[in-house]
Amino acid sequence: MSLLKALFRHPSGRIGATIVLVYLLLAAMGWIGLTPHDPLAQNRIARLQPPSARYWLGTDLFGRDVASRLMTGIGQSFLIAFLSVAVAASVGTVLGLVAAWFERFWDGILMRSMDILLAFPAILLAMLVVAVLGPGTWTSVLAIAFVYMPIFTRVVRGPALSLKNREFVDAARTFGSSTGYIVTRHLLLNIVAPLTVQVTLALAWALLTEAGLSFLGLGTQPPAASLGVMLSDSRNLMEMAPWLMICPAIAIMGGILGFNLLGDALRDILDPKTRVARA
């Protein structure tokens, strides 16, 4: 709770948190069907209509309401982003802790594999994974998780290595604390702050990668809506119906902006130096 309060006191945190909350609200409404129209219902009469009182953001080539599709699309894109980052963060964190705790052989194996993964551009690696597993919502979750996992491993391993040699870990060893206790309470607890920041930033990248995959037809499959699918659909109609492109584009941009602002604010708030100043 105090974290939320601190977020709303922070200037960019306030904007970031508001954007993310609005998106989450829209996504939730899209999920439970609280949309102005059915996002999948086609209407031959009302094709490519510009924004109006009836269709707030216009309609697409099949006469589907863009506003409704945008809401479900945000829901779909956020779901994939959150799930993939959750997987990436948990697997990456565990691998980072393993590398730091065992050092030597495991550190070498794990970190060199992560280096190889990091050498590929994100979207290329994600495409590779989808090419192997086949397109779809769940495979894009896995692909995006796989791509961003090495970053978490790196973010965790560095601090964990230095924390491991701190005196309080030595002290814990003299009490006979178990490895599990030391790793979770003494290492992980002290890495939560950089990890939280990394999660918000990764959410922004995951959103973008998901849009990219769907745009290329490798992620969410039509007729289901996602921000990338909507962009892809608008490709040939850019001049005739610019709202088809502008709406999802702005939605993607706004989402990334929101997560980035949130991440920056969290970095300020969770920094122990400024924490002391606040206390």
């Binding site: 701190r166 005196e167 309080f168 030595d170 002290a171 814990a172 009490f175 006979g176 604390s177 178990s178 206790y181 309470r185 003494h186 607890l189 002290n190 939560v192 122990p272």
Partner: peptide
């Protein structure tokens, strides 16, 4: 350096007991 900055004093004092 010998006290974990993220644990409250109660948790710090409880650790040896739990560890044993």
């Amino acid at each position: 350096a010998s006290l974990n900055p993220r644990l409250a004093v109660e948790d710090l004092l409880a650790e040896p007991v739990l560890a044993a």
